[in-house]
Design a protein around this nucleic acid. Sequence first.
DNA 1: AATGAATGAGGGTTCATTCAT
DNA 2: TATGAATGAACCCTCATTCAT
Lengths: 202, 202, 202, 202
Amino acid sequence: MTVITELVADGSITNPESAKGKLIQCAARLFNTKGFDRTTVRDIAREVGILSGSIFHHFPNKEAILCGVMREAVLIATSKMRAALALADTPEARLQALIHCELESIHGLNGDGFALLVNEWRSLGPDNQAEVLALRDVYEQLWLDVLDQVRAAGLIDMDTFLVRRFLVGALSNTYTWFHLDGDMTLQQLAHQALKLIVRPDQ
Amino acid sequence: MTVITELVADGSITNPESAKGKLIQCAARLFNTKGFDRTTVRDIAREVGILSGSIFHHFPNKEAILCGVMREAVLIATSKMRAALALADTPEARLQALIHCELESIHGLNGDGFALLVNEWRSLGPDNQAEVLALRDVYEQLWLDVLDQVRAAGLIDMDTFLVRRFLVGALSNTYTWFHLDGDMTLQQLAHQALKLIVRPDQ
Amino acid sequence: MTVITELVADGSITNPESAKGKLIQCAARLFNTKGFDRTTVRDIAREVGILSGSIFHHFPNKEAILCGVMREAVLIATSKMRAALALADTPEARLQALIHCELESIHGLNGDGFALLVNEWRSLGPDNQAEVLALRDVYEQLWLDVLDQVRAAGLIDMDTFLVRRFLVGALSNTYTWFHLDGDMTLQQLAHQALKLIVRPDQ
Amino acid sequence: MTVITELVADGSITNPESAKGKLIQCAARLFNTKGFDRTTVRDIAREVGILSGSIFHHFPNKEAILCGVMREAVLIATSKMRAALALADTPEARLQALIHCELESIHGLNGDGFALLVNEWRSLGPDNQAEVLALRDVYEQLWLDVLDQVRAAGLIDMDTFLVRRFLVGALSNTYTWFHLDGDMTLQQLAHQALKLIVRPDQ
DNA sequence: AATGAATGAGGGTTCATTCAT
DNA sequence: TATGAATGAACCCTCATTCAT
C-alpha cells in the first residue's frame, strides 16, 4: 500500500479515492469481466455512480480509460516488484520474489488491470500501445536482469528470454484456474512455479 | 492432412473446400486477428467473397460461426494428437508427441481456431460453451492420461494437473512471440518446453 | 361444398386439393394468425411442405398470395350468398340468409380469407386493391339490394347504406369474441344480429 | 382538453408538447396509416424531426412506442368518458354520452391511437398486452355499467355484453367510412348508432 | 415444378461521443 | 464538473426474390 501512496504522491497514478481513481478501478473490473468491447461507457458510469457523459471529463475517449488502467497496473506492479527486490539478497530469493510479486499482481487488488495487459492489448491503438509498452519494458527488464543473475549463479541453464516467455504464459494463465480462496495458497503456487524453471538441488 | 479428410468423411467437420469451410477459415483468421467483437459479419463476407446476408444460410448467427471455428479446431487437434500418440511408444515419446502436436495446432494451419479456444471463450454463450467444453475435455483427457503415465515412469514429480495448467499457459502464449519463420524451429521449441517439465537425466 | 366445386369447375378459384390451393389455404391461416407482414414466405412454404423458392412458381410475389386469398374468399362468399338467396322468399328471410351467410364466411372454413378482407386491406397495392374491390362490390351489391327490399317492406327505416356499414363492423368484429364451440350457436348469433336492425313486430 | 392537462399533471400521460409527446403522436399517425410493421423507426424519427437513434432515449424499443400510444389513447378516452358521464343524468343520456365519446375518440385528435387499440393488438407482446388490457378493462367497465342501467330502465332488452360487442364493431368500423368533413355530423352518426340498440319509444 | 444457395436492401437497435444547460 | 438528450454511423440479422441446377 505504501507503494501506491508513493506513486500517487509523485503523480504517477491517480488517487484511488478520487472520482477518476474509482473510475479506473471500476473500468478495470468491467473490462476484465466482460471484455473491453462488450463493456459500454454506460456500464462504467453506472458502476461509478455518475452519468455516461461525465466520463468524458476525465478521459477523452473509451480507449483512454483502458490505457489508463493498463498504465497504472504496470506502474504499480513495477513498483511493488522493486520494493520486493530491495529486500531479497540471493539470486534465488530475488527470483522467488519476482514470481510471488507477479502472482500477487495477477490475483491481487489490481489483478484486473494486470490481466488486461495480456488480454486486451489489441484494443489499444498504436499510440497507446507504444506508451504502455515502454512501461512494460521497464517491468520486463527487471525480470531479465534477475533471470540473468539466476543463470549466472547456475540455477537455470535455459535461455533467459525463453524462460521468461514460458513463465509469462504459465503465470498469467493461472488467472483462469487458480483462486485465492482455494486449496492451494499463492505461496505454494509460487513455489511450484519456481520448481518449474529452477533445477532442484542435487 | 489425412486426419482432416477422415473428419470430413464422417461429417465431424466441414469440408474446407466448401463455401462453409472457407467461411470458417476466414472467420477464424479474422476473429483471431481483430477479435471477435471487432470483426463484423461484413468483414467475413468480404473475405470469403460473398455478401453479408449469405452468411446466415450457413450459420444462424455470428456466435455460431465462432462456435463452429472452435469446434472444428478442437476436433482436428484431438484427432492429430490421437494419430501422433499411436506412433509413440515410451511415455517420454508420448509426452513429446503431445507437446509437439499442441505447438503445431497453435502455429499451424488452424492455429487461429486453436488460439480462439483460449482467447474468445467469453464470446460464447452458455450453450455453445458447454458444447465446445465437452470436446475440449476429450482433448484434455488425452493430456492427463499421458501425463499420468509420464509421472508413473518417474519422469516428473509435480502434480499432473498443475503441470498441464502451467503447460497450457506456456505453450499457448508462444502464439505471441514464436514464429515458424524465425531462428528457432518448432522442434526446438518443443524440446525446450519438454525440458521445462521433465527432469533432466542425471 | 357444391358451390366450391362449381367455382373450381369454371376456373374462378383454385382447386383446394391442388398444390396452389393448399398454398392459399395455409397462407390465409398464417396471414390471419400472425399478420401479413410477420408471415414470411418461408413460413408458408414450411406449412405447405415445399421450399420457399417453389412458391414463386405459383405466385409472382408475396402480395399476390394475399390477393389470391382475398379474391377466392370473396368469390366463395358471394357464391354461397347467391345460393342461399335462391332459397329465401320473403325479404326478412333473405336478410336473415345474408346475415347467416356472412357469419358463416367469417367463422367457417375460409374465415381466414374473409377476415383478411377487412384487416389486411392496406397490405395490397393499388392494382390488387382494385381487383379485389371490384369483386367485393358485387358482394356488397347483393347486400344493398336485399336491404332495399327489406326497407321497402317496412322492416327497417334506417338508411340502408348506414345499416350495412354498421352491420359490417358488428359482424366482422364477432371474429374477436365469438367461437363456434362456445355457448351460443351461430344461428342464435345471427338472430341477435337481425334483431339489431329489424324493428320487432309490434 | 382540460382532461388532458389533468392527465399530464398527474403523470398518467406524456405532455403532448414534449419531445416524447410529439413522438407518440407522430408514431400513432404513422402506425395507423401504414401499419405498425410497415412503419420504420426511421419514418417516425423523420416525422418528429430527430434521428433514429434518439428514439431509443424515450422508448426501449419500437413495440414500446406502440404500447405507449395505446396506453395514452385508452387513458384519455376513459377520462373523457368519465367527464361526460358526470354531466349526464338519465340512463339514455348516459348511453348517448358514451356513444358520442367513443365516436369522438375514434375520429378526434387521438383517433389514431384509439384505432390502433383495435387493429394492432397482435403487434404487442404478452406483457404489453396485459398492461393495455388492464386499462381497457376499466374503459369497458364504464360501458357495461351504463348498459346495465339502460337495460334496467327498459330501454334495451338484448344481453348487454352482446350489445357492447356489436357496438364496438359497428362504431370502430366507422373509421373506414365516416369522415368529420362529410355530409353527416358526428352528432347525427351518434344518434343513428343509438337508434340501433335502443327501442324507439312507442 | 422444385430446389436452395445467394442476393442486397433495409430493418431494429446499440453506443461512443458531443454539447447546451 | 456534472448532466442527459441528441447524434449518426455501424452493427447483426431478416427476408422477398432470383436463378442455375
